[in-house]
């Protein structure tokens, strides 16, 4: 028997496979396709203090081996989530982790305070890296000073496991990781999407209503792996890795590069049951190589 249990700070996951915020809705949407209780965790769709309608259509452009999105954090706000969505999913047999967004530090604090009181949720992912909002979001995560301030402010009010989601749209992601670690993060998750753009040459127009959007999918995987390796070697807290994972082999690569847990994102759109097969694939890999504990694989890249 392989041990698949992993800890991210005080957060206990039954296995290292989770689903990425914005790609798995609130989990229930996938219950026709798979047993969601098998997951290590679900990072639910990004939450904000108030209702957000998100950006105008078109919000998506397919690209070579990937896609751009500019959804813009459409959600009904934290109070609606706590009152109506969380009660329906909190007993789904897996860890539910909120993804916290804000236009200002005060927004981040207000949402985190509410989640600190929420029984049954043991961790939040502080999203300082959303590229699709006009104010806040990625602006916090690409500036060392504001990344530190946002993390410190939330750390003061949030007592459970705090995971900070990093933007890859920076020159030195390892330095950003160190900054949020020093500011009190229990873990970091990376990478969020890369800022990109798609153009319709016939119409001579951008495809997305917002002109730019976030690039995800297997096209970003090599850059994501490189960043996870850099961050893993720069900090002591656990890394939750993501960026174009399509199958168990990809997930293993992310673990070898330094991830304690991984998030399956865009792949959920193409194959809604893939995350459960990734769990099986990781277990099979461990069996094949006589690995007794999946934690032993983290960062075990032979150099």
């Amino acid at each position: 028997m392989v041990n698949l249990n992993v800890n991210i700070g005080a957060l206990k996951l039954k296995n290292p496979v989770t689903t990425a915020s914005g790609t798995y809705a609130y989990g229930e949407e996938f219950s026709d396709f798979m047993d969601i209780s098998k997951l290590g965790g679900i990072f639910v769709k990004g939450l904000t203090l108030h209702n957000r309608e998100g950006n105008a259509y078109p919000r998506m452009a397919e690209t070579a081996s990937g896609m751009l999105n500019s959804v813009g954090l459409q959600n009904k706000g934290i109070d609606h989530f706590i009152a109506h969505i969380f009660p329906a999913i909190k007993n789904s047999g897996t860890q539910i982790i909120a993804n916290v967004n804000g236009s200002t530090i005060e927004d981040y604090i207000a949402v985190s305070e509410k989640l600190n009181e929420l029984r049954g949720m043991e961790a939040i992912e502080l999203n300082i890296s959303c590229p699709n909002v006009k104010e806040g979001g990625m602006a916090f995560g690409i500036n060392p000073k504001s990344a530190r301030e946002a993390t410190e402010a939330v750390r003061k009010v949030y007592k459970k496991t705090l995971i900070v989601k990093l933007s890859p749209n920076v020159t030195h992601i390892d330095e950003m990781a160190k900054i949020v670690e020093d500011a009190g993060a229990d873990a970091v998750s990376l990478v969020n999407t890369f800022l990109g753009m798609a153009i319709d040459a016939e119409a001579r127009k951008p495809i997305l209503s917002t002109i730019t959007g976030g690039l995800s999918g297997p096209c970003i995987k090599p850059i994501a792996l490189r960043m996870i390796w850099q961050v893993y070697n720069a900090i002591k807290v656990p890394v939750v890795g993501m960026g174009g994972i399509m199958n168990a082999k990809d997930a293993i690569e992310f673990i070898l590069a330094g991830s304690s847990a991984i998030q399956v994102g865009t792949a959920n759109f193409v194959d809604p049951a893939i995350s459960v097969r990734i769990i099986e694939g990781i277990e099979e890999y461990c069996d094949r190589y006589g690995v007794k504990d999946v934690n032993d694989l983290t960062g075990s890249l032979k150099i």
């Binding site: 790609t23 809705a25 959804v71």
Partner: peptide
């Protein structure tokens, strides 16, 4: 992107 309510693109 998905067709079943996860991506919020459409």
């Amino acid at each position: 992107a998905c067709g079943f309510g996860a991506c919020l693109c459409c």
